[in-house]
Simulated assay, not measured.
Amino acid sequence: MRDFSVADDDVARRRRTFTDLYSDHHSWLHGWLRKKLGCSQRAADLAHDAFIRVLTLAEPHTIKEPRAFLATMAGRLLIDGARRRRIEQAYLEALAIQAHDAGMPDPEAIHVALEALEKIAVMLAGLPDKNREAFLLSRLDGLTYSEIAIELKVSASTVKNYVAGALVHCYNTLYGAEQPS
């Protein structure tokens, strides 16, 4: 049979050690980090992380110079954070280069797209407001006729007529056919 009182005593001793260490040195560590970083919030986060690491130590009661130990621990956390930020920045730069190489259209493609958008704008400009709105809600927003009907406060069959009228108008504008009277 296991003696739980020994284990309980060890847990109580570790808790006391940590509590004493925290209450005696937390504000000092926070101030030391704040001076180094110039940011109270980052200093608080790093001080917290340093004490979390102390919690994971097998024998925190063996720490002889708590401030030197905590400063070393916090310094390592600063180095780890800087290293992580450099890696993240390099990764983001590599992603930007990859996106630029793979997805950036050439100036001619941009020009063609802008011309197409201008033609679309001209086509839509000649539409009645309800037809244009129904058409855009259908084609750009992907709404169903029923959803558009709720949005425009009309019936779904009216929305169908609006969209059909917009399509006919766009076709006629695009191909130069005369508008039906």
Rank of each mutant, 00 (worst) to 15 (best):
D49Q: 14
L57S: 03
R132C: 13
P66V: 06
L55D: 02
K64E: 05
L78R: 11
P107V: 15
R139E: 14
R132A: 12
T72E: 08
A50H: 04
A99C: 03
N131E: 13
D49K: 06
G81N: 05
I63K: 07
L137K: 09
P60E: 06
A68H: 02
A121C: 11
A71K: 02
A134F: 06
D101V: 10
F69N: 01
I120V: 15
M123D: 10
D101H: 05
H111Y: 05
V54Y: 09
E65Q: 11
L114D: 14
M104N: 07
R67F: 06
R132G: 12
P105E: 03
L95H: 00
V122Y: 14
H48W: 00
P60Q: 08
I52C: 12
K130P: 04
D80E: 12
N131T: 05
L136V: 15
E59L: 00
A113L: 13
P60H: 10
F135H: 12
I63E: 06
A68W: 00
R53H: 07
A96L: 04
I120L: 15
H61K: 04
L136Q: 09
G103E: 06
A134S: 14
Q98C: 00
K119R: 15
Y91A: 02
L77Q: 08
Q89G: 00
A50M: 02
Y91C: 02
L70Q: 09
A50V: 09
L124H: 12
R53E: 11
A134G: 12
A116W: 06
A47G: 15
D129R: 11
H111M: 07
H61T: 11
E115I: 13
G103D: 13
N131A: 15
A90N: 11
R84P: 01
L92Q: 02
A109D: 08
E108T: 10
G81H: 09
D101C: 08
K119Q: 15
K119F: 13
L140Q: 11
E118F: 12
G81Y: 02
L95K: 02
L78K: 09
V112W: 07
A102C: 10
D49H: 04
K64V: 11
R86I: 02
L77T: 05
H100T: 07
I87W: 03
V54G: 08
A99D: 12
L78V: 05
R83P: 01
A94M: 00
L92V: 03
